[in-house]
Computed example of a mutant assay.
Amino acid sequence: MTAPHRADSAPGPVPTSGRAADPATAAARARPDAAVVRDALGVGLAVGASGLAFGIAGATAHLTLWQTCALSLLVFTGASQFALVGALAAGAAPLAAVAGALFLGVRNCLYGLRLGPRLRLPRRLRPFAAQIVIDETTAVTLVQPDQRSARIGFGVTGGSLYLVWNLSTLGGALGAGALGDPSRYGLDAAGPAVFLALLWPRLREGGEERSVALLGALLALAAVPLLPAGVPVLLAVLAVPAVALLGRARKGGAGKGGDGA
Rank of each mutant, 00 (worst) to 15 (best):
A220F: 05
A27H: 11
L102F: 15
A213V: 03
T16F: 15
L104I: 07
P4Y: 01
S80C: 07
P232W: 01
L226F: 13
V243W: 01
P117I: 02
A193Y: 14
E208Q: 09
G257K: 09
S211H: 07
G78K: 02
A150K: 00
A7W: 09
L52C: 07
L246D: 12
A59I: 00
V143T: 08
T68A: 04
N108K: 03
F154W: 05
D188G: 15
A222D: 08
Y162K: 06
A130L: 14
P122E: 10
V75K: 00
S80G: 14
G153W: 00
T141N: 05
D188F: 11
L104Y: 10
L215H: 12
A178W: 09
H62E: 12
A261G: 15
V133P: 03
D146A: 10
G153T: 02
T157E: 07
G91M: 01
T169A: 14
A97L: 14
V240A: 14
A239V: 11
R250P: 10
E208G: 13
L221M: 13
L219Q: 10
H5M: 08
R29Q: 15
A261C: 13
A139G: 10
A222C: 15
V106D: 10
V133N: 08
V231D: 11
L203N: 09
G191L: 12
L102N: 13
V224D: 14
A26C: 05
A222Y: 01
A27T: 15
V140S: 08
T157H: 00
A242H: 04
D188M: 11
T141Y: 00
G247N: 12
P225V: 05
A83L: 07
R107T: 13
D8K: 04
L121S: 02
H62N: 10
L45D: 01
P225F: 01
A97F: 06
G153H: 00
A46N: 07
L167T: 13
G116D: 08
L235T: 05
P4R: 03
A28H: 09
L125S: 08
A97S: 10
E209T: 14
L214P: 10
A26I: 02
A34F: 08
G253S: 12
R107C: 05
R123I: 03
P225Q: 06
L234W: 05
R151G: 09
R210M: 13
G112C: 05
R202W: 12
L41C: 14
G158R: 00
P32I: 02
V85F: 06
R6I: 09
G112V: 03
I134Q: 12
A129D: 11
S17C: 07
V143F: 04
P94E: 13
A27Q: 08
A213G: 07
D33N: 12
A197Y: 06
G51L: 01
V143C: 05
F76M: 03
L163E: 09
A46Y: 02
T2L: 04
R250G: 15
L227T: 08
P23H: 09
G155V: 02
G255L: 08
G255P: 11
F128Q: 12
